[in-house]
């Protein structure tokens, strides 16, 4: 499934990294601990988090993640947006809290 389909089906905002919307997703990862994501997330996963600072993008890039979803209407920092555009890794947003969006993403991905 492409990131663009997630955006469409889950009604996500696209904050940045539009050029990366055709990335293929390979599952999801949910964590707000950066070392956990660094150590355990896998290439192509979509990362759901409440962290909005630019180190999120450093990790998304180092781990070759497909996209980042920010929960509960949180807004990315300006340098997060810049980094996302540089790396072509989309930063997406939702009004839903983590539990809700993770559940919907899981369901959609495993359909």
């Amino acid at each position: 499934m492409k990131v663009s389909e997630l955006v469409e089906k889950l009604g996500l905002n696209v904050f940045s990294g539009h050029k990366g919307l055709d990335r293929e997703m390979a599952g999801g990862y949910v964590s707000d601990l950066l070392s956990d994501v660094m150590g355990n997330a896998r290439e192509g996963e979509v990362w759901i988090t409440l962290q909005v600072h630019q180190n999120v993008m450093a990790i998304a890039s180092l781990k070759d993640l497909a996209a980042v979803i920010l929960v509960s209407n949180l807004q990315p920092h300006e340098n997060t947006i810049r980094h996302s555009n540089d790396e072509n890794i989309p930063v997406l947003g939702t009004s839903l809290p983590t539990f809700e969006i993770a559940g919907r993403l899981y369901q959609l991905y495993n359909q």
Partner: peptide, 16 residues
């Protein structure tokens, strides 16, 4: 608060 400092850094280094 940034999501660092969970005490996973050195174990991650060891493991990898």
């Amino acid at each position: 608060d940034m999501g660092f400092g969970a005490g996973m850094g050195l174990p991650n280094m060891k493991k990898n």
